[in-house]
Every structure is written in structure tokens, then in C-alpha cells.
């Protein structure tokens, strides 16, 4: 399938997963908040990657935290993936982006599989499981199916779990997603960039790596036994930043021969070597969220010299799909590969 056609199918599929999606907004991660700050590379980062933002000079950064749903209705307290899209502003008006989420792996290894997954995950009416079904599950030593959240009428969980039951590649993501929960703060979650990138060291050595953001404040989730609160994450972040900068460490995991380099459904072992590439310090929530957040169009394929995409087919497809999505919603263009 041609790249542009696939991009169109992907965007349509994501929009279909949110029947109440509002035209002109992001197809996914629709609700979010933009913040500003700066990134300072660690002293060793330049030894591993020649990209400008790893070479010592502090660079400005724009970050958008988000909930993953494409719905315009906010449900901060629901268990779901959260996004952290970061733009590093480079010299000469250039930029490079890093898109990450709280899930450690993706649901599909190819864009074609993702289309099938998205089709399966179209929300369907949901009702509380019948008590006898829960008892039967407990007798089978299965965790009972959870009740829907108060007011929840539809859910994609049943469809995505059924799909994962038949497609082993998506099982780990589906399983991990069922434990995600909701963070107490956007600043208290770990965000994984999921895909493999290739970084170039000063001596020309190329390494396969994956990035993730680790919160300096530590990770903390809300108590899942308490009723979910629909709207707290943005206010919490404003309060937090008004009092103290929010910091994240950018960690880079170095892959090894035998690690899945092009398959985002497979997380790398946790005991791979990881390098501290620098600290992101978030200091301001801009008043004009439209200009500094909603108009920004992040793209996992917006890279700079020293960082390249792997052959991960999902990453390649996301580059075109995100660009098409930007066009459809009228997001601000940001030239690729501009440095």
C-alpha cells in the first residue's frame, strides 16, 4: 500500500476508535496540556550521540502531556496510556521530536496489523459483568472483569483483548495496558518512546537504542479502588510547575544483537545498559495553549543529524500518518530534517 494511502487508513482507523471525535482536533491524544522548559544534556551524552541537543548546549523544549483517547471528553482518572511529546528546539529554527507514552510497548508490529487492531478496538456498548460471571471467573482463578467506570457506556477494552487473544504480538501491550492505571500527575509517570532509533557517536559508531523519560519526582498512580476523577491532571501540573520545576531524566537503553530492533510490540529486557542522556526541566505552562500546544504538530519521524529511524515499519508509517493528521487539523507545519 502506498505510504500516503496507509497514512490515510491509519488516521481514519484511529478516528473511528473515538466516535465522538471532534473534527479539527488530534485523532488521538486529543486532550493535553503544553508546557515549556529546557533540556540539558548529561556530561556523557555527547559521547554516545552527536545530535545537537546532546552536545552540551542547553536547548529550549516544548512538551505536550496528554491522555491517549481521541474523544473530546476528559477522563483523567480512567486507566489509560498517557503521552509525552517533546520538541527540542535546535539552532537555526530546526527541531527534533521525541514521542513517548506510559505503555512500554505497542500493540502491533506492522501498520497493517495496527489497522486490524484499531478495527477490533472500536468502542462497543459495555455493561457491568453479571455477578455470576464474576463468581465463575473467581472459581477459575481468573481476575473478574472490572466494572465500567461510572457513566461509561462504551469501551474498546473487550475488542482489544479479544484481538490480543488471537494475535500474540499484541498480548504484552494489551496485558500491560490492563495494569496502567492513572498517574497522580503527568509529572509522575515514566514515558517510553517504544520504537528503536539509531544514534551515531562521535567516532561514527552507530547504535540501536530506545529512549524513555523517567520522572525525577518518582512514579505514582492513583488508588484504583477510589472513584475516578475526570479532571485533575492539568490543574495538578499547573500547580506543580508554579511551585517548582518538573524534571525528567532522558534515559537511553542500548540494544544488543538479538534484541528486536524493528518490532515495537516487544519491550527490551530491563537489564540492558542504559545511559543518562540529560535532564528536561519544565518551568512554564503557557497561557496561550492554542499556540504553544494545540497548534504544535509533533512527529516521531522529525529527527536531526545523529539520530535516525530504524526500519521499524510502525515508526515509518507513523511519520506519514502524523504528517497527514497535521494537515487535516491544520496544525503548524514544521519542516522535516531542518537543522
Amino acid at each position: 500500500m502506498a505510504e500516503r494511502d496507509m497514512a490515510r487508513h491509519l488516521v481514519d482507523a484511529v478516528i473511528a476508535d473515538s466516535p465522538d471525535h471532534k473534527r479539527g482536533t488530534r485523532p488521538a491524544h486529543t486532550i493535553g496540556i503544553g508546557v515549556k522548559g529546557h533540556f540539558r544534556a548529561s556530561p556523557v551524552a555527547r559521547d554516545w550521540c552527536v545530535a545537537e541537543h546532546f552536545c552540551g548546549r542547553e536547548v529550549e523544549a516544548s512538551v505536550r502531556f496528554s491522555n491517549s483517547s481521541g474523544s473530546p471528553v476528559q477522563h483523567d482518572g480512567w486507566s489509560d496510556a498517557r503521552g509525552m511529546a517533546t520538541r527540542f528546539h535546535l539552532s537555526g529554527g530546526g527541531a527534533t521530536d521525541l514521542l513517548a507514552m506510559t505503555l512500554r510497548e505497542f500493540f502491533s508490529a506492522t501498520p497493517e496489523d495496527f489497522l486490524a487492531f484499531a478495527q477490533a478496538a472500536i468502542p462497543r456498548p459495555v455493561e457491568p459483568p453479571r455477578p455470576w460471571r464474576k463468581i465463575a471467573d473467581m472459581l477459575r482463578l481468573f481476575p473478574p472483569l472490572p466494572d465500567p467506570y461510572p457513566g461509561q457506556r462504551t469501551s474498546s477494552v473487550g475488542g482489544s483483548m479479544a484481538y490480543s487473544g488471537l494475535h500474540s504480538a499484541s498480548q504484552l501491550a494489551a496485558f500491560d495496558a490492563s495494569f496502567l492505571g492513572a498517574p497522580v500527575s503527568y509529572a509522575r509517570a515514566t514515558y517510553n518512546a517504544v520504537h528503536t532509533f539509531i544514534v551515531t557517536a562521535p567516532d561514527g559508531t552507530e547504535r540501536y537504542v530506545r529512549f524513555f523519560w523517567q520522572p525525577a519526582a518518582g512514579v505514582e498512580m492513583v488508588n484504583p479502588d477510589l472513584p475516578p476523577i475526570d479532571n485533575y491532571l492539568q490543574a495538578e501540573l499547573r500547580d506543580r510547575i508554579a511551585n517548582w520545576p518538573v524534571e525528567f531524566l532522558l534515559l537511553m537503553t542500548v540494544g544488543e544483537m538479538g534484541d528486536p530492533l524493528t518490532d515495537p510490540t516487544k519491550a527490551w529486557p530491563l537489564h540492558r545498559m542504559r545511559i543518562n542522556m540529560g535532564t528536561l526541566c519544565l518551568t512554564e505552562v503557557p497561557d496561550d495553549q492554542q499556540a504553544h500546544c494545540e497548534q504544535l504538530a509533533f512527529n516521531p519521524g522529525r529527527l536531526t543529524d545523529g539520530i535516525a529511524m530504524s526500519d521499524d515499519p510502525v515508526l515509518i508509517a507513523r511519520k506519514a500518518a502524523y504528517e497527514l493528521s497535521r494537515e487535516l487539523r491544520g496544525g503548524a507545519a514544521c519542516p522535516f530534517d531542518a537543522v
Binding site: R140, L141, F142, P143, M161, G165, L166, A174
Partner: peptide, 13 residues
Amino acid sequence: EVADLRLIARALI
């Protein structure tokens, strides 16, 4: 076969 991922809980037990 369709895998009910909740089987993981029993497998662990």
C-alpha cells in the same frame, strides 16, 4: 486458540 489474557493470573498462581 484464543488466549484469555486473564489466564496469566492462574498460570502465575
